[in-house]
Amino acid sequence: MKYLQVTVPKGSLCNLNLNVNVGLPPNAVYNIVTDPDNKRVFKNIKEVISRKVLVDEGSRQVVEVEQAAIWRFLWLSGTISIHVLVDQNREDYSMKFKQIKSGFMQRFEGCWKMEPIFIDEELCHPFKPQSVTDYVTCTKGKGRIASKLSLEQLIQPAVIPPPPISWYLRGIMTKTTEMLITDLLAEAARIRKDSGTSEKNSNEHETHDACNIKKRWAMRRKNARLSGTRLSLNSKSC
């Protein structure tokens, strides 16, 4: 089930609200969205120009990201530069983003949120599980878990163009969001096929991916430091 609503608050180009069910637990969906190498999943990411982890508190990271994104609408396409600060928290499976520097866009911000869907909740009757832990306990680990993914995104240009240009830009933003979700659902389907749908396999896959993401963050920071060192040595030798 997918639901996308586009509204036009006063003074903005559009406010996108999207809800979609994904056939993976929240932790697995969160791994896809926050993976520093998710360019392989989302086809509209042309290039990650820079990525810097500013805060790492284990379950929470604050990351500065600059990337070039591809947009397509009707028979036209192009690229836009996006420079945002991302606050991602594994405790509640949320990811908030906000534009750092205003240019063409005065405001570009929003939030991803992943919540569990207990597919086999009837196995717990008459008990109603209030958490994933409750659900796993009452179903003896056999209950399937999916996710309700929600995205809220506000887009406000420095100067709002008149119709029909504003309609055209709104269509670009809507289509770009639909592309993101289509790619996400395709990746979720691939993961289900590769790892199976049991709770045990899902949890093992999530833990493995989370560890890999941590390792990639550490490796990127190490490579950045080494590159800076090499650059400094080369400068002194000139």
Rank of each mutant, 00 (worst) to 15 (best):
I82R: 12
D35Y: 06
E115Y: 00
N201R: 08
R51Y: 13
S77H: 12
V62K: 11
K214V: 00
G141K: 08
T133Q: 14
I181Y: 01
S202A: 14
N17I: 04
N15L: 11
K52N: 09
V53Y: 06
D35L: 05
E206A: 15
K52L: 00
G103Y: 07
M219R: 10
I49K: 10
K142M: 10
E66I: 07
V20Y: 01
D87I: 04
R216N: 13
P164Q: 15
V159E: 15
K193N: 02
N15P: 05
E152C: 02
I119A: 01
F42M: 02
M105R: 09
L54I: 08
A188Y: 02
T229C: 11
A224Y: 01
R90D: 14
A28R: 01
N89G: 08
V55F: 00
F42D: 02
W167K: 12
R190P: 03
P9E: 09
S147D: 03
T207C: 09
L16C: 05
F73W: 08
L76V: 03
L233H: 09
L18T: 00
N212Q: 13
F73N: 15
N212C: 13
S94E: 11
C14V: 01
V159A: 12
Q88A: 10
E204A: 15
I70A: 12
G143N: 07
K46Q: 08
D183G: 01
T139S: 09
S235P: 07
Y3M: 06
L16S: 05
I70K: 10
S81F: 09
Q130H: 11
N21S: 07
E206C: 12
D92C: 00
R107L: 00
K175S: 15
T197P: 06
R144L: 04
I165M: 13
R220I: 06
A146E: 01
L151F: 04
K2P: 05
S198H: 06
G103T: 11
P162R: 15
L76T: 10
K193D: 01
I70M: 10
Q156L: 03
V6W: 07
L185T: 01
G58V: 04
K98H: 13
T137G: 00
C211Y: 09
T197R: 03
D120G: 03
T176G: 08
Y3N: 11
A146K: 03
K39V: 02
L149Y: 01
G78D: 14
S237Q: 09
T182S: 08
Y30W: 13
N27I: 03
Q88H: 11
L85F: 00
A68S: 13
D209A: 08
E199D: 15
C124D: 05
A146H: 06
P25V: 03
M95V: 13
S237A: 07
L18V: 02
D120T: 04
Y135F: 10
A68T: 15
Y135D: 03
V33D: 05
K128T: 08
K236R: 12
L180A: 03
A68F: 10
N201Q: 12
P162S: 15
R190N: 02
